[in-house]
Simulated scan of single mutants.
Amino acid sequence: MELVTIDDIKAAADRVRDFAVRTPLLPATWADPDRPLWIKPENLQPIGAFKIRGAFNTLARLDEPVRARGVVAYSSGNHAQAVAYAARTYGIPAYIVMPEDTPSVKVEKTRSYGAEVVLCPVGKREEYADDLVEKTGAVLVPPFDHPDVIAGQGTAGLEIAFDLPDVETVLVPVSGGGLASGVGTAIRALCPHARIYGVEPELAADATEGLAAGHRVDWPVADRNRTIADGLRSQPSDLTFAHLRKVVDGMITVTEDEIREAMRVLAYKSHLVTEPSGATAVAAYLKGAVPAGRTAAIVSGGNVNPQMLREILTA
């Protein structure tokens, strides 16, 4: 299996430069001085999440006649918005499959970019997407299981390496594993002494279990859907799992309460609105699971349901 390289990620950076925001590394002034923390706020991207990087890199790599047929994606929200936004930029159709339990804020935003949204039963996303590809002739843009998607997400790692070359620990949320695969590849190449940790909710810790076992494991959808971190309910593919085995030093799991507390800290102390999935890396830092040293944590997204945000911030 051919893995994404640092050259792939550097090429992706050139393609997405005009579309993805180069988010800064924000120092967390409230952090432990022995474990200084910098936050990579991908919630500040135009669509509110890092997924814009992989979407634009993938669409840019398509031949123009192929791209003109349109794109299909399946996603619980952030990849959906990213593909819809990129498709609108290119002036092509987008057909997006979203589970029926997707937060309404993500469904509405995806439609606002001009995409045709198809809601499906939980666990049927891929099946519905395959049907749409067959019916429309559009191209499938998977949420993580594609080298161009992984390379695009890896551009966030390039930026961390440039802004904090002496980083000692990097914390990355893990769902399907595309972000951690790309960022891990970039950090491993440019900051070889840094430690890279993936972070998952305890209630969706399939990657943690799989990496410990040395092979992918399957958790039922119903089990993974227990976590409030709806963006972290997917499982790694063979491709992303191979990347994770190569670039991740370890996994950290966080509880639902630790995720909620991280959202509160980010809102009140760093002035950042995050969704539960986006707060998991900071949750890992806050629980003290990170070694001493300079740490960078990726806040992967901020598309949170307003009612959920109110409940968490006022708890």
Rank of each mutant, 00 (worst) to 15 (best):
R125T: 01
V141H: 01
I52Q: 03
G137C: 06
E127L: 00
L3F: 07
L313A: 12
E116K: 11
A297L: 02
T255Y: 09
G176L: 05
P36A: 03
V299I: 15
A55W: 03
L37D: 07
R233M: 09
L179R: 06
A80M: 03
R111F: 04
I228W: 10
T208V: 11
Y197Q: 02
E159V: 06
K124R: 15
R245E: 15
Q307I: 14
L62D: 04
S112L: 04
V122I: 15
A13C: 05
Q153T: 11
R125P: 00
L239S: 02
D238R: 14
T155L: 12
N303A: 07
T274Y: 06
F162T: 13
K10S: 11
V254C: 12
S76F: 07
G137A: 08
R88N: 03
Y285H: 04
G214C: 06
E275H: 11
A129W: 00
S181Y: 05
L232N: 13
E258S: 11
G250S: 10
V290H: 05
G302F: 02
E168H: 03
I259F: 12
K287T: 14
I39Q: 01
M308R: 13
I9S: 07
H146D: 15
E108F: 04
L286K: 01
E126K: 08
A204T: 09
V72N: 08
Y95L: 01
V248T: 14
G154K: 05
V133L: 03
S270T: 09
P27C: 03
